[in-house]
């Protein structure tokens, strides 16, 4: 039997991989088994995430949009030239502009993966500029609402002043 990873060498090792209690047995050659082991010891389940993504993408991108007979020609990123079909196949976008160019088709995919389509984390210091300030204001406003609900009015007043100060920067 050939190795199911490289399809070159004979399979001599049986490895059972457990991800979230799903068992999968792999028949691998020695070298691939070593690589898979190294991955599992040090690295994250990229391969698994990719296959999960591939099935999502097959539904969203592989099939033509509802009511359309074929995938339309516009389904290509104008910046890097990658097509929707290529994206669906590998699970990798071609460039940062793909997010904009495939925007409406990507939206449901992001929601399915992350449950949302809105970043609330770190904003780069230098290029983030106003976005950084805006997200800081959002966070302070959430704190302000909490403070008010706990009737901690002194803290609420401080937070309100901070928010006003930041709003001047926008």
């Amino acid at each position: 039997m050939e190795c199911e990873r490289c399809h070159e060498r004979p399979a001599t090792v049986h490895l059972t991989e457990i991800i979230n209690n799903q068992k999968r047995t792999m028949r691998l050659c020695e070298q691939c088994a070593r690589e898979v082991q190294a991955e599992s010891l040090g690295f994250l389940p990229q391969m698994n995430l990719h296959s999960f993504l591939a099935s999502l993408l097959h539904n969203e991108f592989g099939a033509p949009a509802f009511g359309q007979a074929v995938v339309p020609e516009r389904a290509r990123c104008s910046a890097c030239g990658i097509t929707e079909a290529q994206f669906a196949k590998r699970g990798l976008l071609g460039c940062a502009d793909c997010y904009h160019n495939f925007g409406d088709r990507l939206e449901p995919v992001l929601r399915r993966i992350h449950g949302t389509n809105r970043h609330t984390g770190k904003v780069p210091r230098r290029t983030g500029g106003k976005v950084r300030v805006a997200s800081q204001i959002e966070r302070l406003k959430a704190k302000l609402r909490e403070a008010i609900s706990r009737e901690e009015f002194e803290q609420a007043a401080q937070l309100r002043d901070k928010i006003r100060e930041l709003e001047k920067q926008l």
């Binding site: 990719h50 699970g91 990798l92 976008l93 997010y99 993966i113 809105r118 970043h119 770190k122 976005v131």
Partner: peptide, 11 residues
């Protein structure tokens, strides 16, 4: 602004 840091894989 909306999506954060853009990566090759949407995951």
């Amino acid at each position: 602004e909306r999506l954060g840091y853009l990566t090759a894989c949407p995951t």
